[in-house]
Amino acid sequence: MQGVVKVNSALNMRSGPGSNYGVIGTLRNNDKVEIIKEVDGWYEIRFNGKVGYASKSYITIVN
């Protein structure tokens, strides 16, 4: 499943599904990501070869 990031500035990509996990990357508005699965309001995603987590509130699913 594919998604597009929708933010005003930047979205942190984290090592786990929560804001208490470390930041491993930064996503920008309109970045395209691969959604692997949903975990407690977060998406596990793949972006630029990295796998991490981002809040699903800021990612819109596209077909």
Score class of each variant (00 low, 15 high):
M1V: 14
Q2R: 07
Q2F: 10
Q2C: 04
G3A: 08
V4S: 07
V5D: 01
K6E: 11
K6F: 04
K6V: 14
K6Q: 14
V7E: 05
N8I: 13
S9D: 15
S9C: 05
A10H: 14
A10Q: 13
A10S: 13
A10L: 11
L11G: 07
L11D: 04
L11K: 13
N12H: 15
N12D: 15
M13E: 01
M13G: 01
M13N: 01
M13H: 03
M13Y: 06
R14V: 11
R14W: 14
S15R: 06
P17T: 02
P17N: 02
G18Y: 01
G18C: 03
N20F: 10
N20E: 13
Y21N: 05
Y21C: 04
Y21M: 04
Y21L: 03
G22E: 15
G22L: 14
V23Y: 05
V23M: 05
G25S: 11
G25Q: 10
T26P: 07
R28Q: 13
R28C: 05
N29Y: 09
N29S: 13
N30P: 03
N30V: 03
N30Q: 13
D31W: 04
D31P: 01
D31E: 11
D31T: 07
K32M: 15
K32I: 14
V33W: 02
V33R: 00
V33Y: 02
E34H: 06
E34P: 03
E34L: 06
E34R: 03
I35A: 02
I35Q: 01
I36Y: 07
I36K: 04
I36Q: 09
K37S: 14
K37I: 08
K37V: 09
E38R: 04
V39W: 10
V39H: 08
V39Q: 10
D40Q: 08
D40H: 11
G41R: 06
W42V: 02
W42N: 02
W42S: 02
W42C: 02
W42F: 08
W42H: 04
E44C: 04
E44N: 10
E44H: 06
I45M: 05
R46D: 15
R46V: 15
R46T: 15
R46L: 15
F47R: 05
N48M: 14
N48Q: 14
N48A: 10
N48T: 10
N48G: 09
N48K: 14
G49I: 05
K50P: 02
K50F: 12
K50G: 08
K50D: 14
V51H: 12
V51S: 09
V51N: 15
V51G: 08
G52A: 09
G52Y: 03
G52W: 01
Y53I: 00
Y53S: 01
Y53N: 01
A54E: 01
A54V: 15
A54D: 00
A54G: 07
S55V: 13
S55A: 13
S55W: 08
K56E: 06
S57Q: 12
S57M: 11
Y58M: 12
Y58Q: 11
Y58P: 03
I59L: 05
T60V: 13
I61W: 04
I61A: 09
I61H: 08
I61M: 09
V62Y: 09
V62W: 08
V62R: 06
V62F: 10
V62N: 09
N63L: 09
N63Q: 13
